[in-house]
Design a protein around this nucleic acid. Sequence first.
DNA 1: CATGAATGAGAATTCATTCAT
DNA 2: GATGAATGAATTCTCATTCAT
Lengths: 185, 185, 185, 185
Amino acid sequence: MNKREQILNATLKLIVQKGIESTPMSEIAKAADTGMGAIYNYFPNKEALVNELYFYLKTKESAIIAQGYDKELSVKQRFVYLWKKMITYFLSEPLDFMFLEQFYYSPAINPKAKHHGSLYLKDLDEVYLDGQTQQLMKDGDIKEWIGFTSGSLVSLVKLHHSNYISIQEETINKYIQAAWDAVKN
Amino acid sequence: MNKREQILNATLKLIVQKGIESTPMSEIAKAADTGMGAIYNYFPNKEALVNELYFYLKTKESAIIAQGYDKELSVKQRFVYLWKKMITYFLSEPLDFMFLEQFYYSPAINPKAKHHGSLYLKDLDEVYLDGQTQQLMKDGDIKEWIGFTSGSLVSLVKLHHSNYISIQEETINKYIQAAWDAVKN
Amino acid sequence: MNKREQILNATLKLIVQKGIESTPMSEIAKAADTGMGAIYNYFPNKEALVNELYFYLKTKESAIIAQGYDKELSVKQRFVYLWKKMITYFLSEPLDFMFLEQFYYSPAINPKAKHHGSLYLKDLDEVYLDGQTQQLMKDGDIKEWIGFTSGSLVSLVKLHHSNYISIQEETINKYIQAAWDAVKN
Amino acid sequence: MNKREQILNATLKLIVQKGIESTPMSEIAKAADTGMGAIYNYFPNKEALVNELYFYLKTKESAIIAQGYDKELSVKQRFVYLWKKMITYFLSEPLDFMFLEQFYYSPAINPKAKHHGSLYLKDLDEVYLDGQTQQLMKDGDIKEWIGFTSGSLVSLVKLHHSNYISIQEETINKYIQAAWDAVKN
DNA sequence: CATGAATGAGAATTCATTCAT
DNA sequence: GATGAATGAATTCTCATTCAT
């Protein structure tokens, strides 16, 4: 892990725990094991650091979800594959998940960084498009349907990380099936 | 509107627009049309103000959703009624919605205020319980199923308020039907 | 006790315990069992209140010390009487003593109130003057000698109220005798 | 003089002149020729600053009084030496003296800092102990006797710095002799 | 007269950012 | 490049004083 990533990860951990404004640059420096000045070699200021962190995590998320993805599978198989990848990732990386959730609406994240949020949807777009073309899935705006599915599944992760429920590996499949029931024709 | 609510509403508006830490108490006072000191007569400090705002909105949400609710209706009718009420409320009150979403995970909200979040679920609980008893709905943890449904629908509101999509009255029914398809047997 | 004295005594207690600036007018009002506005009927502002308290205590001190004083007694008898009166008073009224000690030098007390400090010395002045005239006591500036004696005895009260020592009734006489040894020819 | 001492001395001067609460940190910073933030590198907060100042002056006092002290001298010589050193120091450093006097009882000084007050008494203790052993001085609690002597002499310094009297070099000896008369057998 | 809510100036403290080393 | 002490603007919070009731 290079110094830039050290800084990003230290920032992630501290910000999720204490919030942006309760996390001084000095503490980030300490946690990243550098001096404060060094941070300013990689990021022009605190705001940029936080925004780049958002971007960094979104990119990471996309990469992980797309990993091992096989375009040749059936619509339903791809549907299950992608959503399962996402849930698994978010369950295994609470900090990543909580940061992204918490700052989705935050004015601390500028629109440019936020926009990147939709990049990973390309594969998903295709699945839903194919699903509609093959009459397997309900008609309508694809962005809306993806949001709909995503919301239901992410919601479970949210409850899990809030300690209201404890999601098990086997229940994931059940809920992905339900998500499919919602969108299928 | 009494002074306490004036302050809460001014706080809501400013915090959603600019974030907690970019909203000085002095600006809240100005927006609420009081002196700064008056705020401290109602709330011991800024943290408490934000937490009470969270609590206040959760209470408001519960009240609005439960309004006009008829326990005698069928499971499906109650399902539709409650979720529609929620979506309509969140679509009509973007500030309320964005605040609650944004601070769900925030370390700025303490667990006590957060806990209140689940209070309004009593009616929903009943619907899902009845649904399972009558074999109309899939088995499993009710909290999980409510989270699942809620997530899918809230997600649409989220996209709407992010200007990615524009939800119309008629599409709401379509998505509530899909949410039903997900949970029904 | 009239309201003015209620306020003065509440002020005394709170200020000795917590200091002037850590004692808000609102707390004084509460302790004096009045509203804040009432205080401003008796004292134009906080500074005046504190200064009048100083003056009030100095007057009280003078009155108590002079009480039962008999000018016809011998120099030594009067010396013992007055200093014993003073020590007894200061031992029995820790708050009075601590306030006067603490604010002797304080810039919070203006010179006019402070000046009053020497009023009660009239009787003492006479004792020392008579003592010098009768060649019983050492020559020199009377203010200095009174200060000298006063310092030694007050110091014991100070140690007592600081819990470093515990002065007993019988030891008072011993130290007044020593104080006499210091000034006698 | 290092920055820490610059800050302590600026604090001393301002606090004696205007009192703790009328001395903003910003003014201390200006007087110490630093930024406000720098003060907080040396002292965690204002209260700590004042307490450390008390401790600093007590330590300074001890050091100065003990300077050049010769344990081999007679009891009386040592008695005269130590008290003269103390008076001379307090006469030459009005700020040190007035600060220590003013805050002896102040709730602004915590017991820990105050406790240090008695450390310098070790040499004095010995003098009084030897004096009693050699039957030169009156019997009784040594802490009380030291307080007694100290009080009488300090009182003169107090009057001097209050401009009620003007102590001269030659009169010091007179009063130390009187102090000796008080304690001698 | 008495009350105590409201005001807002003023203080302590924090922390992003700079820059001498 | 890296460091972290120093800066001082900005923020939270307090509380003396006023004044409508």
